[in-house]
Write a protein that binds this DNA or RNA. Structure first.
Lengths: 330, 330
DNA sequence: TTGTAGGCGTTATCAG
DNA sequence: CTGATAACGCCTACAA
């Protein structure tokens, strides 16, 4: 590949001038500009990105840490992030942690090696103390998952306590008094918050909290199927269940159908997220809608704010709303 | 951030020696090694990636061009690629083309700017003539989508003609004689090949090919629902339908249920891919299984072969098998 | 408006 | 085994 020197040589000008044309500097005569452009054309010149990054000390690249690409929730989140990133000329380095603490920690080094200008966290595997020190090396933005103790990190928040509350209350209002809660298997402030909301609703309606109605599954439909089976073994079977994702809800509904349990008559199911699958399954799934794409957009927006401090007011926090969508599964 | 010079200074050695320690060179005395490591520790040193890339002329990064992250097929493909990439210390730059020719072309410039060592294409928006010239600048590997005219590109292939054939034959053997085919909306050699297979099967069993049974939808369940509605308006309704993805199949099945059409008795449905959704929906979807994760793994494997020519034999082509999975929807 | 020179942080070559 | 030096390709004072 040709370098800037080749272009300079061919056009009979200096490297500086070529660079100026390249970067649209104001004071270059049309004449030389033409010359340079011709030379670039002829040599099929393209600037070397590593050289630019080294020189400019920035990369226009953001690392996005994601547990699992195949979890549709994260795919949508990523797409939201990508939308805003692309609009602003940023690239995304996608980093799958696979729910692994060590991997997560390694990826944070991307900041130290200046391979990326910032990092967006969509989950947290380590405790915040572990991650905090990396703030020294560049901006970190959190979305989806969050840490209450982390005061100084810009983040996109949703009131997950409220989410758990409205889901549970909805079931209660539908006449259910024995309601299970099925959360993810991993360490998660989100899941815990929703559980708080779940309990809040129970309390409000004077319903007892019962340990045997709590399930910890991972996040997919197969886990949902397992949960259903366990449900069937309980002495006192719940008539309603609130789950951490639509995938899990779908798995439960599937097994219910296969076992002749009618949804929602015999078992009412509430999902979470409002992913496409919520509307594919029959009956469609009542769910707590998260504006997933928007969460991603806002997160990347926060990142840009930190990176380009020209936009006067640097918003450091965004709050988005959860919303119950009632469908046929309750 | 500290640089290699800082480490050199603090340890009282030269930059060369520091660099040698950094890169595990053989001939460094244990003594100095210790000194260097201490200094690095103390300064919290981390090598600058851009400088290394500039110097070494390689990036250990691969760009993966993908139409849409939220299409689960591509999410799984990407995860397959990521698995092998990670194992070998490579990073992935994820590039969404959103089915846009121009975006695709722009991403290819990553090769010219040496931002990545290679590119994996999971779809093709432009004609191959447009893309071919970029081969000069680095390796390109194709998986999933392919171009028959592209002789000289390593690729992971699946016999999509066969896929279309076995799906259609299966429906015929189930007793259907009016069979629809529903493909994606975009330009695609895959979809065309499957159509060839579809026709082959019809011919073999002396069934007529009929234009009105061909549908062009995009790729998701909502499109499937639309297709179902169109199906219902036909004078002579098909009793079997073969679709380009499990998503579309799921959409069709959903609308069938909602409209009191029994699957498979009144309408048999065959999907494609064998994605998780194929087993979530009731009835479960008969489908042509693609080893999606493996396709991704093999593609990245081919890329590594091109990049690290030490592995004597450079395999330039991988062929994987499609397989019909019979489930309750047929 | 243009050119010269120096440095961004590494690593490879060569000499010692 | 270790150190000096040049070079990777680009950008930006500074000088002209």
């Amino acid at each position: 590949m040709a370098t800037i020197s080749d272009v300079a040589r061919l056009s009979g000008l200096s490297r500086s001038t070529v660079s100026r044309v390249l970067n649209n500097y104001p004071y270059v005569s049309e004449e030389k500009k033409r010359l340079v452009n011709e030379a670039m054309e002829q040599l099929n010149y393209f600037p070397n990105a590593s050289a630019q990054k080294l020189r400019n000390q920035k990369t226009e690249t953001i690392a996005v840490l994601i547990p699992m690409l195949t979890n549709p929730f994260f795919a949508y989140l990523l797409q939201g992030i990508d939308t805003i990133a692309t609009e602003n000329g940023f690239q995304l380095l996608v980093c799958q942690t696979r729910y692994d603490k060590e991997k997560e920690l390694n990826f944070l080094n991307l900041l130290k090696s200046k391979q990326v200008d910032g990092i967006i966290l969509t989950s947290i595997e380590n405790s915040w103390d572990q991650l905090e020190p990396f703030l020294k090396y560049g901006p970190i933005v959190m979305c989806n998952e969050y840490e209450k103790t982390a005061k100084n990190v810009p983040s996109v928040r949703l009131d997950q306590v409220y989410g758990g509350y409205i889901a549970t209350r909805h079931l209660i209002e539908k006449g259910h008094s024995t309601i299970a809660y099925c959360r993810g298997a991993f360490r998660s402030g989100i899941a815990s918050d929703r559980e708080i909301g779940y309990r809040l609703a129970l309390e409000e309606f004077n319903l007892p909290y019962r340990e045997e109605l709590m399930f910890r599954a991972a996040a997919d439909s197969r886990d949902g199927e397992e949960v259903f089976k366990k449900l069937m073994t309980l002495k006192e079977r719940p008539t309603g269940i609130f789950t951490g994702s639509d995938q899990v809800a779908a798995g439960i509904i599937k097994q219910a159908k296969l076992n002749g349990i009618e949804v929602p008559k015999e078992l009412a199911v509430v999902g979470f997220d409002d992913q496409p699958i919520a509307e594919i399954v029959v009956p469609e799934i009542t769910t707590v809608k998260q504006p997933i794409h928007e969460i991603g957009e806002k997160a990347m927006g926060l990142m840009l704010n930190l990176l380009l401090p020209n936009e006067s007011d640097s918003i450091e926090e965004v709050e988005l709303q959860l919303q119950l969508i009632e469908r046929a599964s309750t």
